[in-house]
Design a binder for these strands. Structure first.
Lengths: 236, 236
DNA sequence: TAAACTTTTTTATCAATACAAAATCATGGA
DNA sequence: TCCATGATTTTGTATTGATAAAAAAGTTTA
């Protein structure tokens, strides 16, 4: 049963062999597979090695493991897909285009209701509101509408954000621990259409992001991209 | 330096402590951190345990490890975000709505140029083309435009796809090994608007997916969702 | 000086063993 | 029959010890 691929770590070749067994149906979905001890004997290796292979396959969502209950093959309910959301400046400069940032609005106000519900703050609490545009070769590439919780980040009130974009400032000054992303598609209203040099009702690709440091919500941002151009892609 | 949280595995508590050090800047980004042997001595545990903690933090993208070069803290270039793309039927039934599937078109034709380039097949090769609608409580929820490579999956030509949706059939019959996803926003043309009960030019959330089995491309699908309603969300 | 080797450091993997924790299964009593 | 409980099995974690592999740093040679 041993398939020693030259140079490959043992636990790796065990993983690929098991993946094969799962895909070809040698190990049927839903069925119990042999225990670690048995497999270790079959593969002629230590249990710890089999354990690592099985553990990582479980992390990949191919196996379900429970103490005493054993390990079984599972059919994934959905597909787990990993996307990279690049920093806007890098995203633009990577294409060779020149990056420019412009601040459109900076105010400290009480947010409207729809934003309030996202911010997890008591109503009436003034919050830093920023609107800015990111250009690629002088063509508008992303419109950013951001709220920063001054209770979490009081230092932000001192920053003008005229030279540095909120994102870069935050990355530099505020280490975050958790984030939530929501992707959706919307029609551009008149204001956004003009800012992004689009026609009204053109499709926008929208990323909403909330960022926390420990328990405190730091910032809520809506990023608008012209939908025709923007694509997020991934290969598993 | 030990912070033994009751019940937690040692490597876990080491991980959370190290995460802390990274976030608070005790370990500066870019800087070299102590070697495994040193850390093991500090934590009063075996080197293998420290190794597991470091390895997993590296997998999470917080550390960069190289033999001989040591381990250093890295600033992530972008954010890696994991989304679950659920199977459409489950997605609908989970909300309590009734699911219905309807086949609109089934033909074997030579694909148009834009699809050809995605399919990685020689031109003039007839391919199975399917269009279908997925309803939630009789309201159209997703429009699916799919191409299936008959060279990879000749069995598909025998299937009518009147009762079972292409996705469910494929999941059942064709184990896949790789997939590529592209997300974007588009304006609905007249045809799609009518199918999805939308106004023309309404924003659509579009998922394009290509699926391979080993080296062979199996299927290319475009999934259209009404953008106002559809949201993909994740919490890291 | 520059290229080719060698040394050495550091991480990567593996094995063998031990104990912990969880969950099933069987057993016995109410 | 049903529930509680304890034995047993299986995975999870940790330790120790050892070797392999990678790559930087140093050394030698042409």
């Amino acid at each position: 049963m041993k398939t020693k691929k030259a140079g490959l770590p043992v636990y790796q070749s065990i993983k690929t062999e098991m993946r094969e067994w799962i895909q070809t149906g040698i190990w049927e979905t839903g069925s119990l597979i042999p225990g670690e001890a048995t497999l270790a004997k079959q593969f002629g290796c230590a249990r710890a090695t089999v354990n690592r292979a099985l553990r990582e396959l479980a992390e990949e969502g191919k196996l379900d493991r429970r103490r005493k209950a054993g390990t079984r093959v599972i059919t994934p309910e959905g597909r787990s897909v990993n996307f990279e959301i690049p920093r806007i400046r890098l995203e633009i400069e990577e294409t060779g285009a020149a990056y420019r940032y412009a601040l459109l609005l900076r105010e400290v106000v009480v947010p409207p209701a729809d934003v309030l519900s996202k911010l997890e703050i008591p109503p009436e609490l003034p919050t830093l509101h920023l609107r800015c545009l990111h250009y690629a070769n002088e063509a508008p590439f992303q419109y950013e509408d951001r709220w920063i919780n001054l209770k979490s980040i009081p230092e932000a009130e001192q920053e003008k954000f005229e030279k540095i974009s909120p994102n870069e400032w935050l990355v530099k000054h505020v280490p975050w621990t958790d984030a939530e992303h929501i992707l959706s598609a919307h029609n551009a209203d008149a204001e956004k259409a003009e800012l992004l040099s689009l026609a009204e009702r053109d499709a926008l690709f929208v990323i909403q992001r909330r960022t926390w440091r420990k328990e405190n919500l730091v910032t809520y941002v809506r990023l608008y991209y012209p939908g025709r151009f923007y694509q997020m892609r991934t290969i598993l």
